[in-house]
């Protein structure tokens, strides 16, 4: 019935938040299928529900109705231990605010998920150094976050997201707090990783530069999917965007 290489499947997901006595419908029925290795961008204005959708897909929050399947497993069926395992091994998170743990060095930040995964110390350290090298921070592994620029912190976050070779990387506005060039570098880095490691990347953004590297773009507004564009169709609308901006 379903394509077996769907790494993520979102089915009829809605999410309501209680705001005092009123119920706010933030997601109003999202259906989505994402294939292994795809680079998907979720575009939408601020407040359209991107982060909310991410929290559902990442197992950080539960939908009000509908299901999220990761590898065809309904994650609402998982207990706390399985959910922690999923967050640790299957999914890598990248946030707009970097969320590097302030009291730890770059290397310690990258090895933390490996510690949780039970990787032996030496191996974790070795791999942590390799990952920091990969994101271009080889010489900075002993630096604390406050000694790193925003772009460098986000690189640490990318390395940390890759620590346990996740199948999926969820990046919620990864360039939102970065200047243009640094943001560009992070986008290139993500694209390179998705190619080299065949990681599925799902990235929320309202950064149009993200569109260039995406295999698919999902436009959402007001809690609904407006349209889904493949790469080919994209160049057309990008052209329009270019005209409008140019």
């Amino acid at each position: 019935m379903k394509n077996s290489n769907n790494i993520v499947r979102v089915s009829k997901v809605t999410k309501d938040f209680a705001m005092g006595k009123t119920l706010v419908h933030v997601l109003k029925g999202i259906d989505l299928e994402i294939k292994t290795g795809e680079y998907v961008s979720i575009m939408g204005p601020s407040g359209s529900g991107k982060t909310t959708l991410f929290n559902m897909v990442g197992g950080l929050d539960k939908p009000s109705s509908g299901c999220v399947f990761i590898d065809e497993i309904d994650i609402s069926q998982l207990d706390a231990y399985e959910l922690a395992w999923l967050r640790c091994r299957k999914i890598g998170y990248i946030f707009q605010t970097f969320n590097i743990i302030q009291v730890m060095t770059a290397l310690e930040n990258v090895t933390l998920p490996m510690i949780f995964a039970g990787v032996p110390d030496d191996e974790a350290r070795q791999k942590g150094l390799e990952l920091l090298d990969l994101v271009g921070l080889k010489t900075r592994f002993q630096h604390k976050p406050f000694e790193l620029s925003g772009g460098q912190q986000q690189r640490v976050a990318v390395a940390r997201a890759l620590a346990n070779d996740p199948a999926i990387i969820l990046a919620d506005e990864p360039t939102g707090n970065l200047d243009l060039t640094t943001g560009d570098e992070i986008i290139k880095l993500l694209k390179m990783l998705s190619r080299e490691k065949n990681v599925t990347i799902i990235s929320a953004t309202h950064d149009l530069k993200m569109l260039n590297v995406s295999d698919r773009v999902i436009w959402i507004s007001d809690g609904r999917i407006e349209k889904i564009e493949n790469r080919e169709e994209l160049s057309i609308s990008l052209g329009q965007v270019g005209e409008r901006w140019g």
Binding site: L60, A80, A84, F116
Partner: peptide
């Protein structure tokens, strides 16, 4: 953040 990285 720790919980997102898999902490119980």
């Amino acid at each position: 953040t720790m919980k997102c990285l898999g902490a119980l």
